[in-house]
Amino acid sequence: MEKHLLSINDLSASEAIQILNTASELSKISDGPMKKLPTLRGRTVVNLFFEDSTRTRISFESAAKRLSADVINFSAKGSSVSKGESLKDTAQTLQAMGADAVVIRHGASGAAQRLADSGWISASVINAGDGTHEHPTQALLDAYTIRSKFPDLKDNFNGLKVAIVGDILHSRVARSNVLLLSKLGAKITLVAPPTLIPVGVTDWDVDVSYDLDSAILNADVVMMLRIQSERMAASFFPSEREYSRGYGLDLARLNSLKDSTIVMHPGPMNRGLEISAESADSHKSVVLAQVSNGVLVRMAVLYQLLGGAALTGEVGA
């Protein structure tokens, strides 16, 4: 990770582990009444959100504020920003305002990379979700959450079995998690009806199953993805009931899991569709930990990107 975090591909395994370690250290400081750390005082972080996502924006905002950065929220949804040229104009505006980092959420895959590559802006760019491409900080917080639940995992996830269940085709969370968890050594099985699995998946480093019951039997982690009902309208599956029967984590399936297995969901959940209320609220569910860990991991990412100068030589003593 040189300057931007656009994709998990920007991180080596050791850099990813370092972010998790940094988040771990931050968690110790955060225990108890959390005061602001002065680390990013005088730096400006812009949350540039072209899509609504209150939870992701709040998570980045509180991460930046805990590090004493100045935060500007720029919600571009509903404004005149709908075409690409405006991404450029917006970027140039932010550049003129002196942004040090831009956290971008955008409906178009690759928008974060365009912002970083285009020369419109010199700030660090952090991808907070681009279309159906990636959501790298979500994967990092998921990895952090997994590690906190499996204390044996330290510098790699070798031997960990992860089932990712649901709309793989349209999920940026799934893409980032596949990249990160496999980079760390986990064994991943994607579970979904064939309509929701990308055609190119045969060349991914994963197993694919259409049968949730067998796929989750030995899983250490079951990651449920949000399913959007608009997919039903486009005939990716016949009905919500049929999807739920085949690919929902209901009580029977929850009970079939190993004792140590954890259940994850990036939120917001469709209770009763991809996950039943019993599963969402069970002791196996780490959904709330995912939310609180999000702030720590995003603090770690902001620190890694902004907490130093991009100088190569040693300075001072």
Binding site: T22, T39, Q304, L306, G308, A309, A310, L311, T312, G316
Partner: peptide
């Protein structure tokens, strides 16, 4: 002096 150095691990 954070801005004078590359970021370092905690």
């Amino acid at each position: 002096d954070l801005r004078l150095r590359p970021p370092r691990p905690l």
